[in-house]
Design a binder for these strands. Sequence first.
DNA 1: AAGTACCA
DNA 2: GATG
Length: 203
Amino acid sequence: MSGLLNGIRHLPGYLDRTRQEALVEVIRAVVAEAPLYVPAMPGTGKPMSVRMTNCGPLGWVTDKERGYRYQPTHPATGGPWPEMPKLLLDIWNDVSGYEKPPEACLVNFYSDDARMGLHQDKDEQDLEAPVVSISLGNSCLFRVGGLNRNDRTLSFKLASGDLVVLGGEGRLCFHGVDRIYPATSTLLKNGGRINLTLRRVRP
DNA sequence: AAGTACCA
DNA sequence: GATG
C-alpha cells in the first residue's frame, strides 16, 4: 500500500466465509439487545446516514447536545452495552499487537446509500492502541488521508472479510467511506454493509 | 463537519 | 460513471 502512512495495514480476505457468517450471527445478537439508532451531529443535530450500536464496556455515541463521546450505556434503552464477543477479542489479539483488550466495538450499519465523511478517531484517551476495522457485506470505497484534513487522500475498495488496522503513525489519519457498492456480497440478505471498529479507550 | 452539494 |  504505497502512499499510506506507516502503520496503516489492509488485510484483504482476513476472514473466510465461515467466520464472516459467525460474526454476522454475533452482531445480530448484539443488535437484538442494543438496537441500531441514528446518531446526530454535534451542534446541528443533523442525522448521519449510518445507523449505529456498540458492544463492550464502552460505546461511542454522538448527539446534538453533548457531541462525540464514549459512555457505558445505550442512549435509547439506557442499559449497558452487550458484552464484547469472544470472536472479536480473538481478532484483536491476533492483529492489534496490543496487550490490553478493546473496550469498545462500534457497529456501523451502512445501507447501500449511506456514507461516512472524512474524520479522525480521536475520542479515545489511549492513542497507543490501534483501531481495528472489520468489513462485512457489500464492498465500499474507503478513503484514507494524512494527519491534516487537507492532506492528499488515497481510495481503495474494502470487501467483506477485509480488515484495516490503523496504528502507529496512521492511528490518527483521516478516513471515511465514499460509497457502498450494491449487490457485491451475499453475506447480508438485505444488502448494505456492516463495519466493526475495535478500540481501546482508556490507558 | 463522523454532513452535503457541486463541479471539472 | 469514476475521480478528486
